[in-house]
Amino acid sequence: MQLLEGERELILSTVEEVLQNSSRNREDLIPSLQRVQSKLGYLPALAMEKLAEGLDIPAVDIYGIATFYNQFRLNPPGKYQVKVCMGTACYMKGGEITLESFERRMEIEEGETSPDRLYSLERVACVGCCTLAPVVVVNDDHIEGYVTPTRVDGIMLEFEEADQKEEETEKETEEETKKTAAEGGKNK
């Protein structure tokens, strides 16, 4: 996935910071990757390369670890993230159907991020809320229980509304700044 404007600098400074707080031993590799991911939301290739240089470990080893453990993601998270639980209880109560519904609505496959980075979709192992099955985790902090395909449509609608609202406020603030700037100009 293409890096956004200014992302390259952010990656470099993050890795630099993590390396400074690291003992640079092999045992610090996984915690370092965890720190990078918690800052950036994912592990970009560039970050892994720089970390490999800093820790003096072959980059392929880092890639091996990043792909071995489920926690690490190589795609940037979407602005709206959905994680569909695939624990036993959720699976039996239709987790797969929920996942498919999201795939259909977001037009991406599980594990992917939409090209505009608006949505990302993942399947996760049990989140431990089996009584509410099927469960999805929205934006990391909100757990939705008893999710049916109709509710999937509802969640997507909420995303769209939230996004629209945000755009509008952005526009408004933009216009306001323009206005004040213009007024400021007049006053001069």
């Binding site: 695939m86 624990g87 036993t88 209880a89 699976y91 192992a125 049990c126 431990g128 089996c130």
Partner: peptide, 10 residues
């Protein structure tokens, strides 16, 4: 505790 459907340890 990685078993799906188990949360005693947590």
């Amino acid at each position: 505790e990685g078993d799906p459907g188990a949360f005693m340890d947590r």
